[in-house]
């Protein structure tokens, strides 16, 4: 049979699964924990410094995020962040530096296709959905919180 029936396909998928190498769940968890935690420590150092300088907390927090975005962007530009990501997985993808990486990497990647339809159009290839779902979920949550409960 060229195209397997649903049952054949299910059986084959089961068979194949047995040959997959096991995911190193515990090791990956620790790696993500270490790297993700360390990135947050860098953020905390910046935050503490700004607060100590007398910057109001909310503003200091925004400035910290922006600085972390800059660092993520720079490390992506230098070709280092993808190496960190290969090691740490979500440990470097989940912090806001990873959000910056998801914006800078397609921007750089599609530079050769031009600065309008390449860089700018592709920039939010991965970050776009994050913004869309961030907006959707937070709007629903806020409406419920402010006007319903």
């Amino acid at each position: 049979m060229a195209k397997a029936t649903v049952r054949e396909a299910e059986a084959y998928n089961m068979l194949v699964k047995g040959f997959h190498p096991p995911r190193q769940v515990a090791r990956n968890f620790i790696k993500a924990y270490m790297v993700g935690g360390s990135i947050c420590v860098v953020g905390q150092i910046i935050l503490d410094y700004l607060v100590a300088k007398g910057v109001p907390f909310v503003q200091a927090s925004s400035m910290t995020s922006s600085t972390m975005v800059f660092l993520g962007a720079l490390l992506t530009g230098l070709g280092i962040y993808d190496e960190i990501g290969r090691f740490a997985g979500m440990g470097s993808a989940l912090p806001i530096t990873g959000f910056a990486n998801s914006i800078v990497s397609p921007a750089m990647e599609f530079k050769r296709e031009g600065f309008v339809l390449g860089v700018s159009a592709r920039m939010f290839q991965i970050a776009g959905p994050v913004l869309v779902y961030g907006a959707l979920s937070s709007i629903i949550v806020s409406i419920l919180k402010v006007f319903v409960f």
Partner: peptide
């Protein structure tokens, strides 16, 4: 470190134990 690391670790756990890809987890 403890809180940030935990959040990242949990995200990694979801990545490794489900079919989700990094974009979906973000």
């Amino acid at each position: 470190f403890l809180v940030g690391g935990l959040l990242c670790g949990l995200a990694q756990l979801i990545l490794d134990t489900t079919k989700a890809n990094p974009a979906i987890i973000m």
